[in-house]
């Protein structure tokens, strides 16, 4: 069972306490954007087999959104961080690179 530590309340929450929210760090496009940009925002997803960054909500806890780094091929969790982050924190990237030397890094 998946367990993630909520970066706000510090609770180690298991899956039934959490609600998944899809890919993190999506760039939003609205009126005035091109069809390509809008399609990429609405539908194109990275869907990697490996390191993935996701949005989660501590639904049955503090209720806040946060972000998590996880491996979709092994279900290993690398860490969680606040939803206000524009991109994954450098120390998390370094920790993932230490565990996954072949990983191409956050794009």
């Amino acid at each position: 069972m998946l367990t993630l530590t909520c970066p706000y309340c510090g609770v180690k929450a298991e899956e039934t306490e959490l609600a998944p929210g899809g890919e993190a760090h999506l760039k939003r496009f609205g009126p005035g954007s091109t069809d390509d940009e809008y399609e990429s925002y609405m539908f194109a997803r990275k869907n990697p087999k490996g390191v993935h960054f996701e949005r989660w909500r501590h639904a049955y806890g503090c209720g806040k959104w946060f972000l998590a780094a996880r491996c979709t091929a092994t279900l290993e969790v690398f860490g969680t961080y606040p939803a206000q982050s524009k991109e994954p924190p450098a120390e998390l990237i370094a920790a993932i690179k230490a565990k996954r030397p072949g990983w191409e890094g956050y794009k």
Binding site: M1, L2, E15, T16, A19, P20, N47, P48, K49, H52, E54, R70, T72, A73, T74, L75
Partner: peptide, 14 residues
């Protein structure tokens, strides 16, 4: 289905 991306052919027990 589970609500998150997964390639392991193992799902969540709940």
């Amino acid at each position: 289905t589970d609500g998150f991306n997964n390639f392991t052919q193992r799902g969540s027990f709940q």
